[in-house]
Amino acid sequence: MILTVDRVTKWFGEDPTRTYALRDVSFGVDHQEMLYIVGPSGSGKTTLLSVISGILRPNAGTVTVEGKDIWNLSADDLADFRLHTLGFVFQDYHLFPRLTTAENVAVPLVLRRVRWRDSLRKAREVLEVVGLADKAELPPPRLSGGEQQRVAIARAIVAEPDLLVLDEPTASLDGDTGKRIIEFVKTRILEAHRAIIVVTHDDRIYQFATRIIHMEDGRIVDRAEAVA
């Protein structure tokens, strides 16, 4: 198992207004697995993603990545864990509009203390893989939505993370582009014995999942195996 989530509970506020976002959530993710977390809005998908990414501390339960309980790590070690183990694709991409596309992709490498010049060289290689080699020197606002999504993916995979986390990756893409991108990510990441977690409610891309977890009201209500 690359990731184990055991009885994770997360609530916001205190009694009597305490609201549960996650209740006793448990599951695991293995190498070469593409797990989808699906469910309606407010079901706790994003909260779960934040908890397993080391961003939002749970009130109970453990999250173990590669055998390490991440919520026992110090703040700096947690940052290092995110930097060295995870790759993020945010729903709104969160690209830096005033950096070039290549510079955006290079950010995780720069944070890993790779030299600026070497980071840019690697970023250009990855942009070539996602088909954006000719857009390397453009700022993200000059790219289409699909291209920006690919830049975000390039940024997420440039440092070759063990676990790729995608938050609503196709929310702002048309159906064909969304499918192409997910197919690309799956091929690229799973080939390297890594794992992918996708939070989505876009059923057009369910076909690419190796497993789907369905959430409602902070609970896992259904687990579907080996869709693809």
């Binding site: 990414s53 961003i55 700096d76 940052a79 993020f88 944070l111």
Partner: peptide
Amino acid sequence: ERFGALKAIGARSSE
């Protein structure tokens, strides 16, 4: 939000 993204990606507060 971009600094938030950096933090999420793995930038330390000291950085």
